[in-house]
Amino acid sequence: MIEFDRVNKRFEHHDALRDISLTIDAGEMVFLTGHSGAGKSTFLRLLMLLERASSGTLTVNGRDISKVGRRGIARYRREFGIVFQDHQLLFDRSVYDNVALPLEISGFSQRDIERRVRAALDKVGLLDRENAQPALLSGGEQQRVGIARAVVARPKILLADEPTGNLDPQLSAEIMSLFEAFNRVGVTVVIASHDLALISRLRHRIITLKGGRLVGGGGQG
């Protein structure tokens, strides 16, 4: 489903990723770990086409994504659900409207939107907060809204960059089990996290980066 083939990413004088080759299968759940600055975010940003690889080939769903042009980026990104550390919610609209945004972008009907938003909020346990303003929610709740928004359009791939970075261990564990639940129904999940204690308790492949190089988990899980 996702394949890195000798991928390099170079910023002016600095290699953020060096010679990364690995495959993530459909339906897999993997963690991406390493110290700060190891290249985890860069890895995910290349997948989302927020950055372009300096060399090497990145294949998603059998397609070389360097072929995706400027105009194709929006449509390409809709293939993913994306969860951010700072959740990137819009504070000028309700929880419901935040979660509905990807569906509006994709042009779903109001009826479908309503149904799907409720289902997504139900899954993250926030059905009763649909009219709340995100700013008034706790950090854990905000992150769950972010996850609901990421899965509402039922993407095949879910990417998360430090989704538990701002949460205490208890909430972090809850968020991770939420991701596992989505993975169980077939979603490919890639989570960048430096919280080794948390992720090593979960039984999934761990890809380790160090100074932009792949140092572990490159082989199949």
Binding site: G107, K123, R154, K156, L158
Partner: peptide, 21 residues
């Protein structure tokens, strides 16, 4: 927390279909 996914069949949902409405 509710992490059941009974309602959602799979992650392989229908693709977006732009509707006039």
């Amino acid at each position: 927390m509710n992490t059941k996914l009974s309602a959602q069949k799979t992650g392989l949902g229908l693709g977006p279909r732009p509707q006039l409405a």
